[in-house]
Design a protein around this nucleic acid. Structure first.
Lengths: 149, 149
DNA sequence: TGGAGTACGTTCGCTTGTTGAACTCACTCG
DNA sequence: CGAGTGAGTTCAACAAGCGAACGTACTCCA
């Protein structure tokens, strides 16, 4: 049986899950954000099975998250670079970073790493708000509605 | 071979991925946010294999995202309810919602559904910002640093 | 008392995906 | 010429996913 697919679902969460819903894909994207570009850079950073990594990189290229850029012919070699679509995905990883930081270190002391501003050195704490009101989301006030036409 | 685990990684994204990195778990959480509580409610909403759903619900309970609440004995029956930790996870799903809405409908017209404020009916558009500055994140200005002690 | 229905899983046989290790190929470097 | 490198591909063993059927412990209605 093939894995159930959600890429034609009408829910944005389902479509995103279809693309990113496995153990390696979000980490491949994380490494891409941290500047990795070549196969072996990803491989040694993640220590992922090479076959799985190749499959994930292919899928991310197919889906337009990454783009192959040739840097030599004979043999053909390319780098994997983020597209605009891939770059926009950082928001999702940032939300995961924040939630993981807040909730996945039950010992109370939090993770050994934080996000910082490259120039000022200030700690960056991602948070999700409603673009219109600027306030944090309250699930209880949300509902799903038909899109305005 | 057992799936590679990241639950002891030092990166918050990796730990979050370890928990949510499969195709059903985010959708189970989505349904929990939309008010599902019982096994068959989840099952019919998602149309997931029952064995897989049972495994996911167990895992989410083990990890403190959901909580079993008994609503009858003989036979013992319980509901699955969100904990604070699970409720906090909405931010991640909201970021996925936004990204999926922006990038996973290439036909240009966007998904048929939107998030709305239950009272005012206004469309809600989640966005990720830096809590301190209130500005959207710019990946290029970020780096990973050691946590302050 | 008997049969249908409901709620919540578990078991089954099968297919697909993941894993680590080894291998290939086309170069480059000394 | 031989060793090294980068980017995958192939392999066999094992784990996980799949749909369907089954089990259990009730309740409801005639």
């Amino acid at each position: 049986m093939r894995r159930t697919r959600f890429d034609d679902a009408s829910c944005p969460i389902a479509r995103t899950t279809d693309l990113m819903g496995d153990w390696w894909t979000p980490l491949v994207m994380r490494e891409a954000f941290f500047g990795r570009r070549r196969f072996d850079e990803f491989q040694s950073a993640l220590d992922a099975p090479r076959a799985v990594l190749a499959a994930r990189l292919n899928r991310l290229c197919d889906d337009g998250m990454l783009q192959r850029v040739v840097y030599q012919d004979h043999p053909p070699r390319h780098e994997y670079r983020l597209t605009d679509k891939g770059r926009a995905f950082w928001d999702v990883l940032a939300a995961m970073w924040r939630w993981g930081t807040d909730w996945q270190w039950p010992d109370g002391d939090g993770p050994p790493v934080v996000l910082k501003d490259r120039e000022t050195g200030a700690v960056v704490q991602p948070v999700v708000i409603d673009e219109r009101t600027g306030e944090r989301l309250d699930v209880r006030r949300l509902r799903v509605g038909r899109a305005p036409s």
